[in-house]
Amino acid sequence: MLIRSIEKFLRKHDMPPTKFGRLATRDPRFVHDLRRGRTPGTPMERRVETFMRAYQEMADAR
């Protein structure tokens, strides 16, 4: 489930949900909305997953 992956990502990278939303989707309320039941479409899910993967790769390279 996408929200689970995001929550793990937020804890691992000590990132506020609003920052994640701005960086991943240009929507600072994205995580808040997911927590309240919003269901993103497939393209948005892919966008978020791609962001998390790229961010992790960048963090690993440091």
Rank of each mutant, 00 (worst) to 15 (best):
R47W: 04
A61E: 15
M52D: 04
F20I: 00
T18R: 03
R26T: 10
R62T: 15
R26A: 14
M52L: 08
F51W: 01
R47H: 10
D33Q: 06
A61Y: 13
T50P: 07
E45N: 10
I3Y: 12
K12C: 07
R53L: 15
P40V: 00
R29S: 13
L23C: 03
G21A: 04
T50F: 08
P16Q: 10
R29A: 15
L2C: 05
R11Y: 08
R11P: 04
R22N: 14
P16R: 11
M1S: 06
P16N: 10
M44I: 07
P43H: 06
F51M: 03
M15Q: 01
V31Y: 08
I6H: 01
R36A: 01
P16S: 11
E49R: 07
K19S: 05
D27S: 03
R46Y: 10
P17W: 01
T42H: 13
A24I: 01
D14H: 09
A24G: 01
F51H: 04
L10F: 00
K19M: 12
A54I: 15
R47F: 08
E49N: 12
E57I: 05
A59K: 13
P43I: 05
T39F: 11
F30K: 01
P43R: 10
Y55I: 09
K8Q: 12
H32I: 08
D27Q: 02
R26H: 12
D60A: 12
E57A: 14
R36P: 03
R53P: 07
D33C: 07
R29K: 11
P40C: 05
R62D: 14
L34D: 10
L34T: 03
D27C: 01
F20L: 05
P40N: 06
R4Q: 12
D27T: 02
P28W: 03
E57P: 08
V48R: 00
G21F: 00
R35S: 02
A54D: 14
E45D: 13
F9W: 05
Q56A: 14
P28R: 00
P43Q: 07
T25W: 02
E45H: 02
L23K: 06
A59C: 14
E49A: 13
R46H: 11
D27H: 01
A54S: 15
K12V: 11
D60W: 11
G21Y: 01
L23R: 08
R35I: 00
T50N: 10
S5L: 15
H13G: 02
R38V: 11
K12S: 12
H32M: 13
